[in-house]
Nucleic acid binder design. Structure first.
Lengths: 126, 126
DNA sequence: CGCATAACTTACCATTTGGGGAGTACCTTA
DNA sequence: TAAGGTACTCCCCAAATGGTAAGTTATGCG
């Protein structure tokens, strides 16, 4: 188990480093949602479009392209007409989601509470 | 331990829900970096500005304002001249970072490999 | 014949994001 | 009296983000 401080000293968080790039891919607004959905199993394009509510075709396409290029998501195109394309996590993707899901769950459970603090804007809160 | 599928069924990931709002605050480009730095202990404004390389004053201010409003970061202003302001994680923030740091570390360790896959574009990788 | 279907891509345009730099407040020190 | 240090806020503008809608490809079906 490495600490954040140790990693920082290795230069792992410099302005244009690979860590920041991966962070941007994986923790982007739509990236997180797509990955969570895929953590549930293989999904087709159309299913992802429906399940990740609010995503546009453009963003779904570019998000998936990025995650596939990063080796986190696997794309399988079945040679049927009309085309069927399936997406699932690679082993690397499953490893990643093993770490991300606990975080997502923690957030989902407490989210109402957290934005509640904000919207009530209680000056003497806590 | 709740699963993503179960959470989804509760409506926890609908388009403008609190989960997505918190996700946006906490997993934003600068939010992650500020939180990681604070997970290392209390920091002053000027220290954060230096340690989170590349952040502008504007973004540091708005990121901190958001995290403070969400009850994740605590702000303490010391009545000295010139002013000293200290930021640290709240208990909620420490809880959050307990979940986030393993993920960050996993990413930092493998980031070179991941973007490497992208630039090499190896079709049979992993 | 021509429409439907699935998974995209492309072009255009509005909104959002975010950088730069000046402004502010306040007391201390030269 | 003037400069300086600290932690901001505000305004303007350029650049990136992302939505909408139309186009594409290939074939089965009414």
């Amino acid at each position: 188990m490495v600490s954040y401080a140790e990693l920082r000293e290795t230069g792992a968080f410099a302005p244009a480093c690979s860590t920041r790039v991966v962070l941007d891919h994986v923790m982007s607004r739509w990236g997180v949602l797509v990955l969570c959905t895929l953590s549930d199993g293989t999904h087709r394009w159309g299913e992802l479009r429906r399940e990740v509510e609010g995503i546009s075709e453009k963003m779904l396409a570019s998000t998936l392209r990025q995650l596939v290029a990063d080796g986190i998501v696997h794309r399988e195109s079945l040679p049927t007409v009309p085309p069927h394309v399936e997406y699932c996590l690679t082993e690397r993707g499953r490893d990643l989601m093993d770490r991300m899901l606990p975080l997502i769950e923690w957030i989902a459970v407490r989210a109402d509470d957290i934005v509640g603090v904000a919207s009530r804007a209680t000056p003497n809160a806590r």
